[in-house]
């Protein structure tokens, strides 16, 4: 079990059970404290309001657009064809058979409801979650590519490449993501979109500015992790590969990189978990990801604590999922 078995005397018989019990008790303690804390504040908890931001039933009504008499109703599968005969005009409406509220020979006025249907719709929180997932997934892939390329440039002989990598890493890693986001969107984005407009092209959707700035931000950290990983592989590996006649890039790609990547997986997982949480800043450039949506939902529902806790849980699902994937990769890499 232990990483260094045998260096210390064997544990006593009940060692495991005792500390497992300690763990369980502390967890129960934390939960109980949290529970009493929620009771003691002056706040009415309404957890059921959360549900409608995940899925809700929308009432879809079909209304008459003319005044007249319902001349005929012809069932046609799940919907029925309602023929309304007015003075000098007639209309046909497709109304769900189950939700019909008019009968033949009923007289209807304009805006009268002919029938209604309840339909399940995806709630705002889910939409936010999907957008966060999408932005994060694309950014993770881009960040990994940027990180590997910059990491390679960082150890290159070529001063232009190396200094560019260092400048990029220090600049991006050392400044707040919020500032970078605003610069990307409001300064570079405006310039880009103006140029595109001048050439008669449509502007780039906001989400891509978010993705690029997130990927560049995380890429700077990833580059240093990648560099450390490459440097941790013994130089003998490169010498062996080169002495077989492989080129530098071949040896790097087939011999050094696979070993480096499998060593840095835990660090990469941490970085990409950070990326998922950093995506919560994209709201400032009006990308409606999970945090931005939560803000909106809080305003609408007036139940801030429930919404923010749910928001945190959703992030936890994403980050824990990523963590599981990386753990699986780690096991298969050994």
């Amino acid at each position: 079990m232990s990483l260094y078995p045998g260096l210390d005397a064997p544990r006593s018989k009940n060692y495991k059970q005792f500390w497992a019990a300690v763990f369980c008790l502390s967890i129960i303690g934390i939960i109980a404290t949290t529970f009493f804390a929620t009771k003691s504040i002056d706040y009415v908890w309404r957890w059921n309001t959360v549900v409608k931001y995940f899925a809700y039933q929308d009432n879809m009504e079909t209304v008459a657009e003319i005044e007249g008499i319902v001349a005929s109703i012809t069932p046609n599968g799940l919907t029925s064809n309602v023929h309304v005969q007015g003075v000098g005009e007639a209309e046909d409406y497709q109304v769900p058979t189950k939700g019909l509220v008019v009968g033949v020979n009923d007289y209807v006025y304009m805006e009268d409801v002919l029938g209604s249907e309840k339909k399940w719709k995806v709630g705002l929180m889910v939409l936010g979650l999907i957008l966060t997932l999408k932005v994060s997934a694309i950014s993770v892939v881009l960040a990994l590519i940027i990180g590997i390329l910059t990491g390679l440039a960082r150890i290159s002989d070529n001063p232009a490449l190396r200094w560019t990598a260092i400048t990029y890493i220090e600049l991006v890693r050392g400044s707040p993501l919020l500032v970078q986001l605003m610069l990307w969107y409001f300064v570079i984005g405006t310039l880009f979109n103006n140029l595109l407009a001048a050439w008669g092209l449509s502007s780039i959707p906001t989400i891509w500015y978010g993705v690029v700035s997130l990927a560049l931000f995380t890429g700077a950290y990833t580059a240093e992790i990648v560099r450390a990983g490459i440097q941790s592989v013994h130089t003998g590996q490169m010498e062996a590969a080169r002495s077989l006649g492989m080129s530098y890039s071949e040896a790097m790609g087939k011999v050094i990189m696979p070993q480096a990547i499998s060593r840095i997986l835990p660090a990469l997982a941490g970085q990409f978990i950070s990326l998922i949480k950093d995506s919560s800043l994209l709201g400032v450039i009006s990308i409606r990801e999970l945090t931005k949506i939560t803000r909106e939902v809080v305003t609408a529902s007036l139940q801030p604590f429930e919404m923010w806790i749910v928001c945190a849980l959703l992030y936890l699902i994403l980050t824990f999922g990523l963590s599981l994937i990386v753990q699986k990769l780690e096991r298969s890499a050994i």
């Binding site: 003998g236 590996q237 010498e239 062996a240 590969a241 006649g245 492989m246 011999v255």
Partner: peptide, 18 residues
């Protein structure tokens, strides 16, 4: 690379690809 392909090298520490 061509010269090295013609010149095999065996190292003290083997340097096999793990």
């Amino acid at each position: 690379n061509k010269i090295r392909a013609e010149t095999g090298m065996v190292f003290q520490s083997f340097n096999l690809f793990p």
